[in-house]
Simulated assay, not measured.
Amino acid sequence: MKKTLYLFMLLAACSSAVKAQFCNTQKGTLLYYETRDTEKETVQTDTSCIVDVYKSGDTLIVKQENRGKRAEFGDAAEQITFRCDNDKTTRMTLMSADYLKEMMYRYYLDGYHQANPEETDEEKMKKGFDEFMEQLHCEGEVYIPLKTDAKAGDKLPESKFLYKLKPIKMTASVSNGTVIGFETLTTEAGTFNCLKVSYQAKYKIMFISETTYMTEWYAENVGLVKSEERTKRGKVMATSTLVRIEKPSI
Protein backbone atom coordinates (compact mmCIF):
# COMPACT_ATOMS: atom_id res chain seq x y z
CA MET A 1 0.00 0.00 0.00
CA LYS A 2 1.24 3.46 -0.83
CA LYS A 3 2.39 5.48 2.15
CA THR A 4 0.05 8.40 1.39
CA LEU A 5 -2.98 6.11 1.28
CA TYR A 6 -1.94 4.46 4.53
CA LEU A 7 -1.56 7.83 6.25
CA PHE A 8 -4.99 8.87 5.01
CA MET A 9 -6.59 5.74 6.49
CA LEU A 10 -4.69 6.21 9.73
CA LEU A 11 -5.87 9.80 10.07
CA ALA A 12 -9.43 8.72 9.33
CA ALA A 13 -9.25 6.20 12.14
CA CYS A 14 -7.69 8.69 14.54
CA SER A 15 -10.36 11.26 13.78
CA SER A 16 -12.91 8.83 15.22
CA ALA A 17 -10.86 7.99 18.28
CA VAL A 18 -12.96 10.34 20.38
CA LYS A 19 -15.65 7.68 20.23
CA ALA A 20 -15.32 4.62 22.43
CA GLN A 21 -15.31 1.40 20.46
CA PHE A 22 -14.62 -2.19 21.44
CA CYS A 23 -12.28 -2.84 18.51
CA ASN A 24 -8.92 -1.76 17.16
CA THR A 25 -9.21 1.00 14.57
CA GLN A 26 -5.73 1.04 13.06
CA LYS A 27 -5.59 -0.70 9.70
CA GLY A 28 -2.85 -3.29 9.45
CA THR A 29 -2.76 -4.05 13.18
CA LEU A 30 -2.22 -7.71 14.05
CA LEU A 31 -3.67 -9.24 17.20
CA TYR A 32 -2.05 -12.48 18.36
CA TYR A 33 -3.95 -14.99 20.50
CA GLU A 34 -2.76 -18.05 22.35
CA THR A 35 -5.46 -20.66 21.87
CA ARG A 36 -5.59 -23.71 24.14
CA ASP A 37 -7.74 -26.71 23.28
CA THR A 38 -8.23 -28.62 26.52
CA GLU A 39 -9.75 -31.64 24.79
CA LYS A 40 -6.91 -32.14 22.33
CA GLU A 41 -4.35 -30.71 24.77
CA THR A 42 -2.94 -28.43 22.08
CA VAL A 43 -1.71 -24.84 22.08
CA GLN A 44 -1.51 -22.71 18.96
CA THR A 45 -1.19 -19.06 17.97
CA ASP A 46 -4.12 -17.52 16.09
CA THR A 47 -4.10 -14.10 14.50
CA SER A 48 -6.61 -11.39 13.68
CA CYS A 49 -5.82 -8.56 11.29
CA ILE A 50 -7.55 -5.19 10.89
CA VAL A 51 -7.99 -5.21 7.11
CA ASP A 52 -10.12 -2.11 6.58
CA VAL A 53 -11.21 1.03 8.45
CA TYR A 54 -13.52 3.62 6.92
CA LYS A 55 -16.46 5.94 7.54
CA SER A 56 -19.95 5.48 6.10
CA GLY A 57 -21.88 8.58 7.05
CA ASP A 58 -21.49 8.93 10.81
CA THR A 59 -20.64 5.26 11.25
CA LEU A 60 -17.08 4.01 11.71
CA ILE A 61 -16.72 0.56 10.14
CA VAL A 62 -13.87 -1.79 11.00
CA LYS A 63 -13.32 -5.11 9.24
CA GLN A 64 -11.23 -7.74 11.00
CA GLU A 65 -10.13 -11.05 9.51
CA ASN A 66 -9.75 -13.97 11.90
CA ARG A 67 -7.72 -17.10 11.38
CA GLY A 68 -8.00 -20.23 13.48
CA LYS A 69 -10.27 -20.75 16.46
CA ARG A 70 -11.82 -17.29 16.36
CA ALA A 71 -13.74 -18.16 13.18
CA GLU A 72 -16.50 -19.52 15.39
CA PHE A 73 -19.10 -20.17 12.71
CA GLY A 74 -16.81 -21.57 9.99
CA ASP A 75 -15.45 -19.91 6.84
CA ALA A 76 -18.32 -17.44 6.60
CA ALA A 77 -17.25 -15.94 9.94
CA GLU A 78 -13.65 -15.44 8.84
CA GLN A 79 -14.35 -11.72 8.79
CA ILE A 80 -15.93 -9.82 11.68
CA THR A 81 -17.37 -6.36 11.12
CA PHE A 82 -17.57 -3.71 13.83
CA ARG A 83 -19.94 -0.77 13.41
CA CYS A 84 -19.53 2.17 15.76
CA ASP A 85 -22.56 4.42 15.34
CA ASN A 86 -22.21 6.47 18.50
CA ASP A 87 -20.00 6.86 21.55
CA LYS A 88 -21.69 4.06 23.52
CA THR A 89 -22.29 1.05 21.28
CA THR A 90 -20.12 -1.14 19.06
CA ARG A 91 -22.12 -3.61 16.97
CA MET A 92 -19.97 -6.69 16.38
CA THR A 93 -21.27 -8.78 13.47
CA LEU A 94 -20.04 -12.39 13.43
CA MET A 95 -22.01 -13.47 10.38
CA SER A 96 -24.38 -11.73 7.99
CA ALA A 97 -26.25 -12.39 4.76
CA ASP A 98 -24.66 -9.34 3.13
CA TYR A 99 -21.12 -10.52 3.86
CA LEU A 100 -21.83 -14.07 2.72
CA LYS A 101 -23.20 -12.79 -0.59
CA GLU A 102 -20.12 -10.62 -1.07
CA MET A 103 -17.85 -13.58 -0.30
CA MET A 104 -19.73 -15.86 -2.69
CA TYR A 105 -19.55 -13.24 -5.44
CA ARG A 106 -15.75 -13.05 -5.03
CA TYR A 107 -15.49 -16.85 -5.21
CA TYR A 108 -17.76 -16.87 -8.27
CA LEU A 109 -15.67 -14.26 -10.09
CA ASP A 110 -12.43 -16.09 -9.27
CA GLY A 111 -13.83 -19.34 -10.65
CA TYR A 112 -15.31 -17.62 -13.70
CA HIS A 113 -12.02 -15.91 -14.57
CA GLN A 114 -10.14 -19.20 -14.24
CA ALA A 115 -12.61 -20.98 -16.55
CA ASN A 116 -12.91 -18.03 -18.96
CA PRO A 117 -9.63 -16.08 -18.79
CA GLU A 118 -10.42 -14.01 -21.89
CA GLU A 119 -13.91 -12.95 -20.79
CA THR A 120 -14.18 -9.22 -19.95
CA ASP A 121 -17.93 -8.63 -20.19
CA GLU A 122 -18.84 -7.75 -16.59
CA GLU A 123 -22.58 -7.72 -17.31
CA LYS A 124 -22.37 -11.28 -18.63
CA MET A 125 -20.45 -12.41 -15.57
CA LYS A 126 -22.90 -10.71 -13.21
CA LYS A 127 -25.88 -12.24 -15.01
CA GLY A 128 -24.54 -15.72 -14.36
CA PHE A 129 -24.13 -14.92 -10.68
CA ASP A 130 -27.63 -13.42 -10.44
CA GLU A 131 -29.08 -16.62 -11.91
CA PHE A 132 -27.23 -18.64 -9.29
CA MET A 133 -28.43 -16.33 -6.49
CA GLU A 134 -32.06 -16.94 -7.51
CA GLN A 135 -31.64 -20.45 -6.11
CA LEU A 136 -30.19 -19.18 -2.84
CA HIS A 137 -32.03 -17.89 0.20
CA CYS A 138 -29.87 -16.05 2.69
CA GLU A 139 -31.00 -13.73 5.46
CA GLY A 140 -30.23 -12.45 8.93
CA GLU A 141 -27.24 -11.41 10.98
CA VAL A 142 -25.51 -12.85 14.03
CA TYR A 143 -24.28 -9.95 16.13
CA ILE A 144 -23.44 -8.79 19.64
CA PRO A 145 -23.82 -5.17 20.82
CA LEU A 146 -21.00 -4.04 23.11
CA LYS A 147 -21.90 -0.96 25.16
CA THR A 148 -19.71 1.30 27.25
CA ASP A 149 -22.63 2.00 29.60
CA ALA A 150 -23.59 -1.68 29.96
CA LYS A 151 -24.53 -2.90 33.42
CA ALA A 152 -24.24 -6.35 34.97
CA GLY A 153 -27.39 -8.31 34.24
CA ASP A 154 -28.22 -6.55 30.96
CA LYS A 155 -29.56 -8.96 28.38
CA LEU A 156 -28.10 -9.23 24.87
CA PRO A 157 -30.57 -9.54 21.99
CA GLU A 158 -31.00 -12.84 20.18
CA SER A 159 -29.87 -12.91 16.56
CA LYS A 160 -30.10 -15.48 13.77
CA PHE A 161 -28.66 -16.25 10.34
CA LEU A 162 -30.09 -18.57 7.67
CA TYR A 163 -28.52 -19.97 4.50
CA LYS A 164 -30.51 -22.27 2.21
CA LEU A 165 -29.41 -23.72 -1.12
CA LYS A 166 -31.28 -26.97 -1.85
CA PRO A 167 -30.63 -29.45 -0.39
CA ILE A 168 -28.26 -27.60 1.95
CA LYS A 169 -29.57 -25.62 4.89
CA MET A 170 -27.39 -23.89 7.47
CA THR A 171 -28.37 -21.81 10.48
CA ALA A 172 -26.40 -19.94 13.13
CA SER A 173 -27.61 -18.06 16.18
CA VAL A 174 -26.65 -16.23 19.34
CA SER A 175 -29.01 -16.46 22.31
CA ASN A 176 -29.18 -16.23 26.12
CA GLY A 177 -26.65 -13.42 26.08
CA THR A 178 -25.90 -11.54 29.29
CA VAL A 179 -23.59 -8.74 30.39
CA ILE A 180 -21.57 -9.95 33.37
CA GLY A 181 -19.97 -6.57 34.01
CA PHE A 182 -16.60 -4.85 33.73
CA GLU A 183 -13.46 -6.62 34.86
CA THR A 184 -9.73 -5.86 34.83
CA LEU A 185 -7.76 -8.49 32.95
CA THR A 186 -3.98 -8.81 32.64
CA THR A 187 -2.35 -10.81 29.84
CA GLU A 188 1.05 -10.79 28.13
CA ALA A 189 -0.29 -7.96 25.96
CA GLY A 190 -1.00 -5.68 28.94
CA THR A 191 -3.68 -4.80 31.50
CA PHE A 192 -7.16 -3.99 30.19
CA ASN A 193 -10.48 -2.84 31.60
CA CYS A 194 -12.85 -5.27 29.88
CA LEU A 195 -16.55 -5.63 29.25
CA LYS A 196 -17.39 -9.26 30.07
CA VAL A 197 -20.27 -10.96 28.27
CA SER A 198 -21.57 -14.50 27.92
CA TYR A 199 -23.83 -16.07 25.31
CA GLN A 200 -24.87 -19.32 23.66
CA ALA A 201 -23.67 -19.88 20.08
CA LYS A 202 -25.40 -22.51 17.97
CA TYR A 203 -24.39 -23.71 14.51
CA LYS A 204 -26.34 -26.24 12.43
CA ILE A 205 -25.80 -27.58 8.93
CA MET A 206 -28.20 -30.23 7.65
CA PHE A 207 -28.53 -32.74 10.54
CA ILE A 208 -25.31 -31.80 12.31
CA SER A 209 -25.47 -29.19 15.05
CA GLU A 210 -23.10 -27.80 17.64
CA THR A 211 -23.81 -25.57 20.63
CA THR A 212 -21.14 -23.81 22.65
CA TYR A 213 -21.33 -21.49 25.63
CA MET A 214 -19.04 -18.49 25.27
CA THR A 215 -17.64 -16.04 27.81
CA GLU A 216 -15.68 -13.14 26.32
CA TRP A 217 -13.81 -10.05 27.50
CA TYR A 218 -13.59 -6.94 25.28
CA ALA A 219 -11.49 -3.80 25.86
CA GLU A 220 -12.09 -0.39 24.32
CA ASN A 221 -9.88 0.41 21.31
CA VAL A 222 -8.49 -3.15 21.43
CA GLY A 223 -11.27 -5.67 20.87
CA LEU A 224 -11.26 -9.22 22.15
CA VAL A 225 -8.85 -9.81 25.04
CA LYS A 226 -9.96 -13.28 26.10
CA SER A 227 -12.58 -15.90 25.33
CA GLU A 228 -13.62 -19.15 26.96
CA GLU A 229 -15.63 -21.86 25.24
CA ARG A 230 -17.53 -24.17 27.60
CA THR A 231 -19.91 -27.10 27.50
CA LYS A 232 -23.43 -26.83 28.89
CA ARG A 233 -22.15 -28.26 32.17
CA GLY A 234 -19.46 -25.60 32.42
CA LYS A 235 -16.39 -27.57 31.36
CA VAL A 236 -13.84 -25.33 29.60
CA MET A 237 -13.18 -26.69 26.12
CA ALA A 238 -10.94 -23.94 24.74
CA THR A 239 -9.55 -20.52 25.62
CA SER A 240 -8.06 -17.74 23.52
CA THR A 241 -5.98 -15.03 25.17
CA LEU A 242 -4.50 -11.90 23.61
CA VAL A 243 -0.73 -12.11 23.96
CA ARG A 244 0.56 -9.44 21.58
CA ILE A 245 -0.56 -6.43 19.57
CA GLU A 246 1.58 -5.59 16.56
CA LYS A 247 0.96 -2.18 15.02
CA PRO A 248 1.97 -1.49 11.41
CA SER A 249 5.09 0.56 10.78
CA ILE A 250 4.49 3.84 8.97
Rank of each mutant, 00 (worst) to 15 (best):
L185Y: 06
T90N: 03
V225F: 06
V197T: 12
E118S: 15
G111L: 07
I250L: 03
G181W: 02
F161I: 00
S240M: 01
G153I: 02
P248R: 12
R67D: 08
E188F: 00
G177V: 02
V18W: 15
L109T: 12
T187Y: 01
V174K: 09
K40G: 02
L165I: 01
E188D: 15
T93Q: 08
K226N: 05
Y213K: 04
M214S: 00
V18Q: 14
K124V: 10
G74Q: 03
E216W: 01
E210F: 08
T231C: 03
T89V: 11
R106L: 08
D85Y: 14
N176Y: 08
A152V: 05
L195S: 02
Y105E: 12
L11N: 14
N66C: 09
K166V: 09
D154A: 05
K27V: 13
E78M: 08
G74L: 05
Q114N: 10
E139W: 00
Q21A: 12
A238Q: 15
K124G: 02
C194K: 02
G181M: 01
G181H: 01
E41C: 13
S56Y: 14
T45I: 15
G153L: 04
D121I: 03
V243R: 03
R233S: 14
S173N: 08
P157S: 05
S159K: 00
V62F: 05
S16F: 12
Y33P: 12
T38A: 02
D46Q: 03
Y99M: 06
D75M: 10
G128P: 06
T81M: 09
S56K: 15
F73Y: 08
M92C: 14
M9T: 09
T241E: 14
L7K: 14
R230K: 15
D46F: 04
D130T: 07
K147E: 12
T184Q: 09
L136I: 00
Y107M: 10
Q64V: 15
G177Q: 00
L109A: 02
Y218V: 12
K151S: 12
D154V: 06
T171I: 04
S159A: 06
K69S: 13
V51K: 11
R67Q: 11
T171D: 07
G74F: 01
E41L: 15
R91F: 12
F192Y: 03
D154F: 12
F73Q: 01
D52W: 03
D85A: 14
T191Q: 03
A76P: 06
S96C: 09
E158D: 14
Q21E: 09
K155T: 08
P157L: 03
M9L: 11
M237R: 06
T47P: 00
